[in-house]
């Protein structure tokens, strides 16, 4: 493995990583992708490291992906989720985490509903922290695995490529991280969705905004379709799923009517028939399941690189 190191002690967000960090993560992930496709998938790299997965919000795939990455690296793993936690008894985040750290945990993977919670924690505790999603702020490992997957699908780096992000930008933590990552890698980014789900000032992050799905699909090389986050919508941002699908949904028929073949991505879980129809999600041009595989390799790379900084 590479002797290069990350510039940061934590992975709190893409905005705190530089291009060299991102490139290093990609290079390392590529090596781990090869490892997890071997008959013996396990390496001893994190043998003396204990990782706590603290999930203060529901998650299935991100939690499993991290857990698998940690186990493939031979780390000791403890899991904590809010449904079985003392959080509901009124304990503060800091107390919960300090209790777990007293058990000598080296690294923390945390998902939390509050933007900035991992940064807050990084100021308080000595462990390395990986942000597994903080509210509508960042989800850096998702953005890295997305960009890694795009590079593989396009068989090229992302400089000058046109990447479109569709759907619920307002409630998405994936969108902001994706924008930061893609812009750092030199891609052109365009967002497309109903105006009520696109933050008013998002163009100041250097992206374009469109309300026309067809035109955006015609423009892009990759369509990253986001999940409609119904659970985070405290008020109605659009009238019905039916109308959303009619206006902003992507189907195989729509994809087939385009001049060029667009790579289709989705961070999951998909609302089938809402933002993406099943025939589009399962089509040849979809790389959704490769994203999942790359997720494990990317997370292994991040865990490995942070652990190697410790030594």
């Amino acid at each position: 493995m590479s002797q290069r190191q990350l510039s940061t002690k934590h992975v709190l967000g893409i905005k705190y990583l530089n291009v060299d960090d991102i490139q290093l993560i990609f290079d390392t992930a590529l090596e781990f992708k090869e490892v997890i496709n071997r008959p013996i998938k396990k390496v001893p790299s994190l043998r003396d490291i204990t990782v706590a997965n603290l999930f203060f919000e529901n998650s299935t795939r991100t939690r499993i992906s991290f857990e698998l990455a940690e186990k493939r690296l031979s780390a000791d793993v403890v899991n904590f989720s809010s449904s079985s936690s003392s959080v509901k008894k009124g304990e503060t985040l800091l107390d919960t985490v300090n209790n777990i750290l007293s058990m000598k945990v080296d690294m923390v993977v945390m998902r939390h509903p509050a933007p900035g919670a991992p940064l807050f924690l990084s100021r308080k505790i000595p462990a390395n922290i990986i942000n597994a999603g903080d509210g509508t702020h960042e989800h850096p490992t998702q953005a890295l695995l997305d960009a890694f997957s795009m590079r593989q699908a396009l068989n090229d780096d992302l400089g000058g490529k046109n990447i479109a992000i569709f759907g619920d930008i307002l409630h998405s933590r994936v969108a902001v991280s994706n924008i930061y990552c893609l812009k750092k890698l030199g891609a052109n980014v365009r967002l497309c969705g109903p105006p009520t789900l696109i933050p008013k000032h998002i163009s100041k992050l250097g992206v374009e905004v469109s309300y026309d799905v067809r035109k955006t699909l015609e423009w892009c090389d990759v369509a990253n379709v986001l999940r409609i986050q119904l659970e985070r919508q405290d008020i109605k941002y659009f009238p019905s799923l039916r109308e959303y699908h009619q206006t902003f949904g992507i189907s195989k028929a729509l994809l087939d009517s385009l001049d060029s073949e667009v790579v289709v991505m989705h961070p999951g879980p998909i609302n089938r028939g809402v933002e993406l129809t099943s025939d589009a999600a399962d089509s040849e041009q979809s790389i959704i399941l490769e994203q999942v595989e790359n997720g494990v390799a990317t997370r292994m790379a991040i865990l490995y690189l942070l652990a190697s900084r410790r030594s």
Partner: peptide
């Protein structure tokens, strides 16, 4: 439910403005 001034900073922090 805004948490801070709505602008580029709130957008980049994922906070409602």
């Amino acid at each position: 439910s805004g948490q801070m001034h709505e602008g580029m900073i709130s957008t980049s922090l994922g906070l409602k403005g």
